[in-house]
Design a protein around this nucleic acid. Structure first.
Length: 426
DNA sequence: TGACGTCAAGATCCG
DNA sequence: CGGATCTTGACGTCA
């Protein structure tokens, strides 16, 4: 029997508009044992809350931020954090398993394994060990990956690739079992990376936008490269992964877009849907786009009530940008037998592109104020009305207004508003 | 030497 | 004094 291909969608590092999930950090000179312990404990709690959110949204793919343990790979942090917090890591790991969430990590552009400078390589190895230790402490399966770029060129790509091979061989087996290579936006194309991956037995993540910027062969489409990368994924490595992002218009090539644009995404999805893939989105609005893309491509397991939940989170943003679209979406969602996901998100995309309009923004702010006007103190009332006036006159920004309303939302504990995307400053 | 990317912490300013 | 706003940090490569 033929199995249907499945596309799963995930997002990276942060869950926006989810309370108490923002990771904390500190600067090096303040990184004493006391503070580090406090931050790690907090960050693990935050990670657990992100996973609860992911489960509720049926998101089963997530990248854990490298910031989870501040200075996790530096002598500045001499805590045996993996042992000290072993039980907390295990608890979270159990939930990952129970919820079916596949996690990965992605050391940044400053982790360079192929540097000619041995001190840089040493730090790169330490950094990989840190990331690996997090995944090990969570007791994740071998399909939980560590994604890395090849590194720099140093005027001689061949020699630099050879150095990658040599240094890779020195890594311990725990890291090798998790390491995955990705094509980057300026040095190593997908064919370079495939050459290394096939030779060394390392799975390869194909990055859509990087390949557009740093293209190895304009005559080949994404489907070709996905197929070419497929054989680098062995059974034990889990489902093949790719990265997907869109170019932010008007910014330099490679800049990630603020959100995943609906119609462009649907077109892309249709071009890859015959592959079985985990797709990691790299986009500024993180989980917002993940929820969007999941609702766009999995209509069989979703219904109009899911769009209505999304509408509850988007409505004030739409109201402040484009009241006519607000009305249009209300009409669109009236037919409870329909599932107009593409139209719904296209309208939201359209609304978000509208420029700020003072009258509309005041209107939306007054709607939110309506939740508090009876419980707010006189002082809060005076302050809010004054801010509205200042905003109207052009002497205050809308973000000041939103901060004020967000503070009231937290103070008076309104969970409906707390989940609203309205407060994510534009 | 500074851009690149990231984004909260830290520092400073303001009322 | 608290809140708003501006600056710094931490990493490696490359021009």
């Amino acid at each position: 029997m033929e199995e249907l291909s499945v596309i799963k969608i995930g997002y990276a590092c942060q869950a926006l508009a989810v309370e108490d999930t923002q990771l904390r950090s500190c600067i090096m000179k303040n990184a004493d044992e006391e503070r580090l312990k406090e931050i790690i404990a907090y960050n693990l709690d935050a990670l657990e809350r992100i996973m609860e959110y992911n489960r509720a949204q049926e998101i089963t793919l997530f990248r854990i931020s490298s910031e989870l343990v501040p200075f996790g790979s530096s002598p500045v942090n001499s805590l045996k954090w993996d042992l000290r917090f072993a039980e907390r890591f295990r608890e979270i790991g159990r939930k990952l398993k129970e919820y079916g969430i596949r996690v990965s990590m992605h050391p940044g552009q400053y982790t360079v394994l192929n540097s000619p400078d041995t001190a840089v390589v040493k730090r790169a190895v330490e950094d990989l060990e840190y990331h690996c230790k997090v995944l090990d402490a969570l007791k994740t399966a071998p399909d939980s990956k560590l994604i890395l770029h090849v590194g720099g060129i140093y005027q001689d790509k061949e020699a630099a690739m050879k150095r990658f091979e040599d240094n890779y061989k020195l890594l311990h087996d725990g890291i090798k079992a998790r390491l995955v290579l990705e094509n980057d936006d300026k040095s190593y194309t997908i064919s370079d990376v495939l050459e290394l991956g096939l030779k060394l037995g390392i799975p390869v993540v194909f990055d859509h936008l990087h390949n557009r910027i740093n293209c190895s062969d304009p005559s080949k489409n994404d489907s070709f490269w996905i197929e070419a990368s497929k054989s680098t994924w062995k059974d034990i490595d889990g489902r093949q992964k790719i990265h997907y992002s869109q170019q932010e218009g008007g910014k330099k090539p490679g800049s990630h877009s603020l959100t995943i644009e609906t119609r462009e995404f649907v077109r892309y999805y249709e071009s890859i849907l015959f592959h079985d893939l985990d797709v990691m989105l790299e986009v500024k609005d993180k989980n917002l786009s993940a929820v969007k893309c999941i609702l766009l491509i999995t209509p069989e397991s979703k219904g109009i009530q899911d769009l209505e939940k999304e509408w509850a989170r988007y409505k004030y943003t739409v109201l402040e940008r484009a009241p006519h679209i607000y009305q249009e979406i209300r009409t669109l969602l009236k037919d409870k037998t329909s599932y107009p996901a593409v139209q719904f998100y296209s309208l939201i995309d359209e609304a978000c592109k509208e420029p700020e309009n003072i009258g509309h923004s005041v209107n939306a702010a007054m709607h939110i104020w309506g939740y508090f006007k009876h419980q707010a103190t006189e002082k809060e009332k005076t302050a809010f009305l004054k801010s509205i006036e200042n905003y109207r006159l052009g002497s205050a920004s809308s973000s000041a207004l939103k901060r004020q309303l967000e503070r009231l939302t937290r103070k008076y504990g309104n969970p409906y508003l707390a989940a609203s995307y309205y407060f994510l400053l534009s």
